[in-house]
Amino acid sequence: MTEQSAPYISHPRILVHGVCPGRPGQPPFRIMEIDGRVIGEARHVTDVLEAAASYGITIHDMDDPDVVRWVGGDKYTWTLHSR
Rank of each mutant, 00 (worst) to 15 (best):
W70K: 04
R23P: 09
H60Q: 11
T58N: 11
A51C: 08
E33Q: 04
G40T: 05
V16C: 03
G73N: 03
Y76T: 07
F29I: 03
E50I: 11
P27D: 10
T77V: 06
Y55A: 09
T79H: 14
P27W: 06
G40I: 01
Y76N: 13
G73V: 01
S82T: 10
V16W: 02
P28Y: 05
E41Q: 12
I59L: 07
D63R: 04
Q26G: 10
G40C: 08
C20N: 13
V48T: 00
R83K: 13
P27T: 02
V45A: 14
R13H: 13
D63T: 10
G56Y: 00
L49M: 09
T77Q: 08
Q4P: 11
W78L: 05
G22E: 07
V38T: 12
A53H: 07
T77M: 08
S5M: 15
T77G: 07
R23C: 09
F29H: 02
H17C: 04
R37H: 06
I14P: 03
H11D: 12
R43K: 14
K75L: 08
I9K: 11
R30M: 03
I59E: 05
R37W: 06
R69L: 08
I57D: 02
W78F: 08
P21C: 06
R37Q: 15
W70P: 02
I59Q: 02
V38F: 07
V67W: 01
W78E: 01
M62W: 01
E3G: 11
V16A: 04
A6Y: 13
A52R: 03
H44N: 15
S10R: 15
S10F: 15
W78H: 07
V45W: 09
T46C: 13
C20R: 13
R23L: 11
G22N: 12
I14R: 01
Q4K: 15
V48H: 00
M1R: 09
A52Y: 01
Y76M: 11
V67R: 00
G56H: 05
R30Y: 00
T58Q: 12
D47H: 04
E41S: 13
A6S: 13
